[in-house]
């Protein structure tokens, strides 16, 4: 019987597993890790998808398994749940700062209000101006929209509110 890592060690290790589409953001920052269970030799990580068509889910699941194996878990389990549905409100404050530094405007906190989701004021991640406008509510991945800043005349992407 090998020594299993503690819950705390696992959470810390998952901070190093990055979203393949946004490499500065860990799965923990993204808020998609729901639970870590350690029961004897059994280790289970419960996660939830961001957008349901997100093709990165399978890659993230594998990376979580590999990370757990590095920690000495022989047969890690990753369980995917849909309930409650993920919302961009669950991105951590730390995650929001990282997004902004990466040049991707963080999503507004909307608490389910469709008006805020569809018509947010999005400050430019480069110059901070609020004189920005959406040019496409769909972007290079399911979770991005495309904006333009009239102040610094830069196009930028936003992590889309969901």
């Amino acid at each position: 019987m090998s020594q299993m890592p503690s819950q705390e060690q696992i959470w810390r290790a998952l901070q190093e597993v990055m979203d393949p589409e946004i490499p500065v953001l860990s799965l923990v920052d993204l808020g998609i890790i729901r639970e870590v269970k350690v029961e004897g030799q059994e280790v289970t990580v419960v996660m939830t998808p961001t957008f349901s068509g997100c093709p990165a889910l399978e890659a993230m699941r594998q990376e979580v398994e590999e990370k757990l194996q590095e920690l000495g878990v022989p047969r890690p389990r990753v369980e995917v749940v849909l309930d409650p549905p993920w919302s961009s409100d669950q991105i951590s404050p730390e995650g929001r700062r990282k997004l902004e530094a990466f040049g991707l405007a963080p999503p507004p906190v909307h608490r389910g209000d469709p008006e805020i989701m569809l018509n947010p004021v999005v400050p430019c991640p480069y110059c901070g101006s609020r004189r920005t406008r959406v040019t496409n509510t769909f972007g290079s991945t399911l979770c991005r929209a495309i904006y333009y800043c009239d102040a610094c005349q830069q196009a930028f992407e936003q992590f889309k509110p969901l």
Binding site: F51, S52, G53, T137, F138, G139
Partner: peptide, 18 residues
């Protein structure tokens, strides 16, 4: 822009199908 948008719609629908 529409090329990007329709590709997103397609990807969403296929994700829902799954």
């Amino acid at each position: 822009e529409e090329d990007i948008a329709i590709a997103n719609l397609a990807q969403d629908e296929i994700g829902h199908a799954l």
